[in-house]
Amino acid sequence: MTPDLILEGAVWLSLGCFGLSLLLCLYRVVFSTALPDRILALDTMTINVIAVFVIVGIAEGTPVYFEAAMLFAMVGFISTVAFAKFLLRGDIIE
């Protein structure tokens, strides 16, 4: 087996695993009754999307996906902090 074939198989396997994880988190967001569970599922979805961006960047060999993953990570962190602050205080802006 060539290294390119092994890399391609690993990329497809990892994309399938992260896709399944995204679907399970989406199920948790839609059918959960508690707001903290939904926030945690959205944060987990953010992490999974970052991983998908990095995997696609490795497969394509272009740095554009890595920059998109970095931007998505920053926005995901800010949104998680905002959700948590809203959950604790009921207000985001003081």
Rank of each mutant, 00 (worst) to 15 (best):
L42N: 03
I55S: 10
F77R: 02
V75I: 12
L24P: 08
T46H: 02
G57K: 06
T2S: 11
M74H: 01
E60A: 10
R28C: 01
A34E: 13
I78Y: 03
F83W: 14
T46N: 13
I92E: 05
Y27Q: 03
I78S: 09
V75P: 03
V64R: 13
A10P: 11
L87C: 08
I78D: 09
T33L: 11
A84R: 11
L35K: 12
A41I: 08
G76Q: 02
F18I: 00
A84S: 10
T2A: 07
L13R: 04
L71Q: 08
C25F: 12
T46D: 03
L7T: 13
L5P: 00
N48G: 04
I55M: 07
L71C: 06
E67I: 07
V64A: 15
V56F: 05
A34L: 06
A82V: 03
F31C: 07
L35C: 10
V81M: 02
V29Q: 05
T33H: 13
L15M: 12
R38L: 05
L87R: 06
L23P: 10
G90K: 00
V52A: 07
D43I: 07
W12D: 04
E67D: 15
F66I: 02
V75M: 10
L71H: 14
S79C: 05
L26Y: 09
S79R: 01
G57C: 05
G16T: 13
W12K: 07
F86N: 11
Y65T: 12
L42M: 08
K85M: 03
T62W: 00
V49M: 11
L24M: 12
G9S: 14
L35V: 14
L88D: 08
V29A: 13
F77G: 11
L23W: 01
V30E: 14
